[in-house]
Amino acid sequence: MSITQQYFLDAYRARQLGEPAPPAPGVNDWQVVREWRDEREFRAVVAGRPAHGPMRLALGRWLHRRQRSTC
């Protein structure tokens, strides 16, 4: 049975029981990836390793802005 067939079966059963339908497959995939990346970056910073990627860019922009405003 494929994931799509399982989803339709679960949605049918939920409708028969008057319950809300389950989320469609793949709806929350990007949210899960973002949360996993954030958790990995957080653990790296807590372990004393430098931040990389979007976190490092955001920190750099914030620090640069603070230095410019104090001049």
Rank of each mutant, 00 (worst) to 15 (best):
M1A: 13
S2H: 07
I3L: 10
Q5S: 08
Q6C: 03
Y7D: 06
F8C: 06
L9H: 09
D10M: 09
D10I: 01
Y12R: 13
R13T: 13
R13I: 11
A14L: 10
R15L: 14
R15K: 14
R15N: 13
R15H: 15
L17F: 12
L17G: 11
G18K: 14
P20Q: 15
P23G: 09
P23D: 14
A24G: 03
V27M: 11
V27W: 10
V27I: 12
N28I: 08
D29T: 01
W30A: 04
Q31A: 07
Q31W: 07
V32D: 06
V32I: 11
R34D: 11
W36H: 07
W36R: 05
E39K: 14
R43G: 05
A44P: 11
V46E: 12
V46F: 12
A47M: 08
G48L: 07
R49A: 12
R49L: 10
P50D: 13
A51D: 08
A51C: 04
A51Y: 08
G53L: 06
R56L: 08
L57R: 15
G60C: 10
W62Y: 13
L63H: 05
R66G: 01
R66A: 02
R66V: 00
R66W: 01
Q67P: 06
R68L: 03
T70S: 00
T70H: 03
T70K: 01
